[in-house]
Amino acid sequence: MPGFLTLQGKRALITGGTQGAGAATVALFRDLGAQVLTTARRRPEDMDEAMFIAADLTTHQGCETVAEAVRSRLVGVDIIVHMLGGSTAPSGGFAALGEAEWQAELNLNLLPAVRLDRALVPGMALQGSGAVIHVTSIQRLLPLPEATMGYAAAKAALSVYSKALSKEVSPKGVRVVRVAPGWIETEASLRLAERLAQEAGTDVEGGKQMIMDALGGIPIGRPSKPAEIASLIAFLASDRAASITGTEYVIDGGTVPTA
């Protein structure tokens, strides 16, 4: 990969970079020569303190803290990767989602990207270059009403916002691209597979199959690996993708059944 692709000299902000695909993206960007600042609520013990900022991005103040760290530590930014996302909403369909649950989904999956872009993209436009990557989800196309309706709606909103932003800032040299993963095999998803397997009296592979069945099947027969998500993001952030903007790249092993 280093021989094919480089991010040498690029300054990057990657949110949600301490676990799963986020951590894989941080590691790959650094391997490819980028100077990376990442953020989460707590810093892992093995992460360089100088290139980490602790902040709660579900709040306006947390986003301001990160934007200021970008300005002071990186002195500007060339790449922003919005990896942050997830859901804490209860199962039970739309009736289980009250005002607090809906606001929490928006605060986690939509508003951090909006707030950080508002703070940092104008600087990219002034320098005449930059890449912004919004990590959405195939659930904007395949929502699971029992458990992730709010998450899917927030990611759909992020996707529409991303498209609109691309139309405004691409003429100013700032590319805006979306990456839509399906199921990623992270530590958290493996814990879910283990729990499902225990409940069903089967093994972990059986638990994985239950998740794939719930998604309608994954033609390649497995979830994506965090490193695979990171590789796509690195390419899209690089100068090799200089003419790519305003579009979405699905990386889901073929889960979405339409073109």
Rank of each mutant, 00 (worst) to 15 (best):
P2C: 07
G3Q: 13
G3D: 13
G3H: 13
F4M: 09
L5S: 00
T6I: 00
L7C: 04
G9I: 07
L13I: 00
T15K: 03
T15I: 02
G22V: 04
A23E: 03
T25G: 05
V26I: 06
L28C: 05
L32T: 02
A34L: 05
A34S: 06
A40I: 01
R41W: 07
R41F: 05
R41E: 07
R42W: 08
R42Y: 09
R43N: 05
P44Q: 10
E45L: 10
M47K: 05
E49D: 13
F52P: 03
I53W: 03
H60V: 15
G62H: 05
G62R: 06
C63M: 13
E68L: 14
E68F: 11
A69P: 05
S72A: 12
V75F: 08
V81E: 05
L84N: 10
G86F: 01
L97T: 00
Q103T: 07
E105R: 08
L110I: 03
A113N: 12
V114K: 09
V114T: 09
R115Y: 11
R115L: 11
L116E: 05
D117R: 14
L120A: 11
P122D: 09
L126A: 15
L126F: 11
G128K: 13
I133W: 02
T136L: 02
S137I: 00
L141K: 13
L142S: 10
L142I: 08
L142G: 08
P145D: 04
E146R: 12
A147S: 12
A147D: 08
T148V: 11
M149H: 07
M149C: 10
Y151R: 06
Y151V: 06
A153I: 13
A156L: 04
Y161R: 09
E168H: 14
E168R: 15
V169N: 00
S170L: 04
R175Q: 02
A180T: 11
A180C: 09
P181V: 10
E185A: 15
T186S: 09
A188W: 02
L190T: 10
L192D: 07
E194R: 14
Q198M: 08
Q198E: 13
T202R: 10
T202C: 14
E205V: 12
G207S: 09
M210W: 06
M212G: 09
D213I: 09
G217K: 07
G217R: 07
I218D: 01
P219I: 00
P219Q: 03
I220F: 02
R222H: 14
S224A: 15
S224L: 13
P226Q: 01
P226W: 00
A227D: 14
E228N: 08
E228I: 06
A230Y: 01
D239T: 12
R240L: 15
A242N: 13
S243Q: 14
T245S: 04
T245I: 02
G246H: 15
Y249W: 15
I251Y: 03
T255P: 00
P257C: 10
P257Q: 10
